[in-house]
């Protein structure tokens, strides 16, 4: 997956009896990811009649539709918009909110950092500096409640998934693969590599709201010493995160 611009293939496809999928590519190419983000933002700003739910994914936007909606009419309208987005190649819409999240990297909190840096041909500090400078965006939320897929990191971070699954990384583990970062909300098995840890919890059932991130949010990590990470249960489980409203 490099930055070479692939041909986008905007399609509107049935997704079950109550769903439509607007998809820009089968693979997670950066241009398709950007197009899906733009499409989701446009749909959320002005939901077409008959849509019950709009859910951004990596290269697609999933719409749950009212069973009585005009499926054909909605499909035509969505396809026209998707083709416009694919042709215009607009930049990502500006973020409405930005999170700054303290995290510890390397050592016990990032056992794979050395291997990651070696694979990138960089020092640990150089690799981390690039990651901390990256203005990440929440590309999609899913798998588990509130769990963000963050990206895209610069091309050097196109790291493969590990061939073997790590049986468990802790809650708050920051893992990386395919130019994306996932922050686990709960202890999880993973094939991605762990480079850091945060006490930010994107999902806590008893918190209001339970899921705090939204697709489109901007996010940066700020490095702190492991013993400077707040306890996970402090401050509503936000781990010392700062939230700015930008618009």
């Amino acid at each position: 997956m490099d930055d070479a611009v692939p041909e986008l293939t905007p399609e509107v496809l049935p997704a079950g009896l109550d769903g439509l999928l607007v998809r820009f590519h089968l693979s997670p190419h950066p241009a398709a990811i950007a197009a899906a983000q733009v499409m989701a933002a446009r749909l959320q700003a002005d939901p077409p009649p008959g849509t019950a739910e709009i859910c951004p994914a990596l290269v697609s936007v999933h719409l749950r539709i009212d069973p009585t909606a005009d499926r054909a009419g909605l499909s035509v309208r969505l396809l026209a918009e998707a083709r416009r987005v694919a042709m215009e190649r607009p930049p990502l819409p500006g973020p409405v909110r930005r999170w700054t999240i303290p995290a510890a990297f390397g050592g016990a909190d990032g056992p794979d950092l050395g291997r990651i840096a070696a694979a990138m041909g960089r020092s640990e500090d150089a690799a981390l500096a690039e990651l901390l400078e990256a203005d990440l965006r929440v590309l999609a939320i899913g798998f588990a409640p509130g769990q963000p897929y963050l990206g895209l990191l610069p091309p050097g971070w196109n790291l493969p998934r590990l061939p073997q699954i790590t049986p468990e990384v802790p809650a708050g583990a920051i893992v990386v693969a395919l130019r994306q970062i996932v922050v686990f909300g709960a202890p999880s098995p993973t094939g991605w590599q762990q480079l850091g840890r945060t006490s930010f919890r994107s999902f806590l059932p008893a918190r209001e709201p339970p899921m705090v991130l939204r697709a489109g949010d901007a996010l940066r990590f700020v490095r702190v010493a492991p013993d400077a990470l707040p306890a996970a249960e402090d401050g509503g489980g936000l781990g010392g995160a700062l939230l700015e409203r930008l618009a």
Binding site: A15, R23, L26, P28, A57, V59, H62
Partner: peptide
């Protein structure tokens, strides 16, 4: 044929 792999997508019951 998908050199960059299949992008994860929304899934549901059924």
């Amino acid at each position: 044929q998908l050199t960059a792999g299949l992008a994860s997508d929304i899934i549901g019951p059924g």
